[in-house]
Design a protein around this nucleic acid. Structure first.
Lengths: 367, 367
DNA sequence: GTGAGTTCCGAAACCGGTTTCGGCAAGGGA
DNA sequence: TCCCTTGCCGAAACCGGTTTCGGAACTCAC
């Protein structure tokens, strides 16, 4: 019977150079060539060099799936994106994927991508990719405080790397941005501009970053000698609509904030909307600083000042951490963090209005 | 020497059920089991059933890389995204990838993703993925009129499927949306609303869709008995900035358009900007219809009426077409098209102003 | 009853690598 | 000189499948 293999245009590849071709050309056996190329210690240095040069010259490249059959390793990093997620991070997806892909291919690895519709589907996808040995490990984006994906991989003893941190760091390698430092710095900047009533709109509390950024905000307030008013703090705003609502709520308080720090850019763009509706000018009447670095923020008026994340570099770092993890390095040695970069674009300035004046302006526009 | 394989937590997989386990359980040889599962004709129907049931019961799943070593097929579809592209299509990337991934996994295949920085890098990436047999075929997004990627794959005889069409259809399978029909329909709608001076802002001419959409626009004009004024036609606008410039150019003509059809949503959002600068209200003073269905359009005021593309379904269709192509089906039988869906959201209405009145308004705002 | 086909499965080679094991030769110590 | 290491490589098994080939058993026609 004839099946796919030979009906298809592509076949087993006529003139591919195999390890046997290399060993024949050198008068060695393929086992020697294999060990030479894989740096076994029982190969003489001269032989190793001869083999390397010949392999190079003949253009020999081992097939990863042929290696996999014995080693069990596919040389592939896995990534499962969840479609159910709000699209707060969608703008960065391309950059992030590019980074992951480049980090992988720098080591001769590939990126195997899957998409899932909901958390259950995500876990199923992980399981089937593991069962079929599609990948050697996973990158876990958008970590939660308590994350079932981590539980699963820990239990199955599959290597993984987090983009973010999590409550229980056991067996976890990660790369993360110090959002808490950014929030603290944001407060510091606003205080230096003369703000004293500063609000905070946090992101989704299920995400691990939320508690950290909140703590960073509070630390900044404390450092500046300012009181953190519970009424000026909100949670779970990751979209423009949610950010707008939370900002409106704060602005309608008897003593509204003169500045609002947002944990994510989308929420800050919601603050823009709320400000517009209340007749407040962002950057003078009301200041806001945010975090993410979305392209949308740059196009707003005024452009949004934000702490920007380099998603391309993040992705590539994660790939290389994961590969090192798969190669056996201790997770504790594979934990990197980085500072987000502040982009000062004008959405924060000295308070043009007092809290009371803002309250008046808001009341006026409510009528 | 101990290398990656056994230092890593994951190893060759203790209790995995192999084809030999199945054959032993049945008292058959593994060759018989293999042929039974692959529907060879020289296996008795009863045997085939016995084998299937036992394989099912024991939870046997062949390893794709073990099959690949003999068949040459990895059961993986390849996709290379170009980062250099303007980000007109970025918002859809997640949906598109989800579709491709789901279409692949429906057949037990996977998606191997790579990113490239420029056209040359793209071709190199294709070549190395082919050399290392990472994938069995490729999905080619955003096809150009003359596309080097297609040339390469045609030459190397690697199966591929286009998202879009191209000048030379030889060996090409594809899925595409009938943008030309959408443009024609847009003109029809505008004409029905009473517009007679209708402008057209096209996308990048290197893309295959551009000529098609232009022809669709012209056909619509002809059908409506309207004159297509060359001054009211522009090209290569795929960003907000480019759309704005082209719209401003048209609005400053002695006889400006009362409606503008755009080939891509981003250009239409540029029309919004231009209109705002000229004191024109979109949907009454100036109408616009567009194509893509970006989320951004839904948030504009008024929301942008546009012909929307279902990128998830597009991706999944492309995957299944590619798999059929790899299995040997004739490319000519693997060509599907679909209509974009019109979303009427209010950016087009009966002309509130004549062309002359618009010219007056524009001149007034220029001062 | 015999010869020619069919039907169906086993045996073994094969794919392209990796890994284990054994042994030869050189080197070193007594 | 002899023995014991040590260094280095070949031979062969192995990984988990697929594919080729041959032959036993059964069918059917004459």
């Amino acid at each position: 019977m004839r099946t796919a293999a030979d009906q298809s245009v592509q076949n087993t590849g006529a003139n591919r150079v195999t390890i046997s071709d290399v060993s024949d050309a050198l008068g060695l056996t393929k086992s020697t060539v294999s060990r030479a190329l894989n740096d076994y210690p029982d190969i003489a240095e001269g032989t190793r060099l001869r083999v390397r040069r010949m392999a190079e010259k003949m253009g020999y490249n081992p097939l990863s799936f042929a290696q996999a059959i014995r080693t069990g390793l596919t040389r592939s990093v896995g990534l499962v994106i969840q479609m159910a997620d709000h699209d707060a991070h969608r703008p960065f997806l391309a950059e992030f994927l590019a980074g992951v892909s480049q980090g992988a291919s720098a080591e001769g690895w590939t990126l195997t991508l899957a998409a899932a519709n909901d958390p259950d589907h995500t876990l199923e996808t992980f399981s089937s990719m593991i069962r079929d040995r599609k990948v050697d490990g996973f990158i876990i984006p958008r970590t939660l405080v308590h994350d079932d994906r981590i539980e699963l991989l820990r239990r199955k003893r599959i290597p993984f790397v987090l983009f973010g941190r999590t409550a229980d760091p056991t067996d976890c390698a990660w790369f993360d941005l110090l959002g808490e430092d950014a929030m603290q710095d944001a407060v510091r900047r606003l205080a230096a501009l003369g703000h004293s009533r500063i609000g905070f709109i946090n992101g989704g509390l299920q995400y691990n970053y939320a508690a950290l950024r909140r703590d960073g905000f509070l630390l900044g307030m404390q450092e500046a000698g300012l009181e953190a008013d519970a009424h000026l703090m909100g949670d779970d705003a990751v979209t423009i609509a949610e950010g707008r609502l939370e900002a409106l709520r704060m602005l309608r308080l008897p003593a509204p904030p003169t500045a609002i720090v947002c944990a994510v850019d989308m929420a800050a763009l919601g603050v823009y909307r709320a400000a517009a509706e209340c007749g407040l000018v962002i950057g003078s009447d009301l200041s806001t600083l945010s975090y993410d670095g979305t392209p949308d923020g740059a196009h707003a008026t005024p452009p949004l000042s934000t702490y920007a994340v380099n998603f391309t570099r993040s992705g590539s770092t994660l790939s290389s951490l994961l590969i090192r993890r798969i190669r056996g390095e201790d997770p504790q040695d594979l934990r990197e963090t980085e500072q987000a970069v502040f982009l000062d674009r004008g959405s924060a300035g000295p308070p043009a209005l007092t809290s009371g004046e803002i309250a008046g302006r808001v009341a006026q526009h409510a009528a």
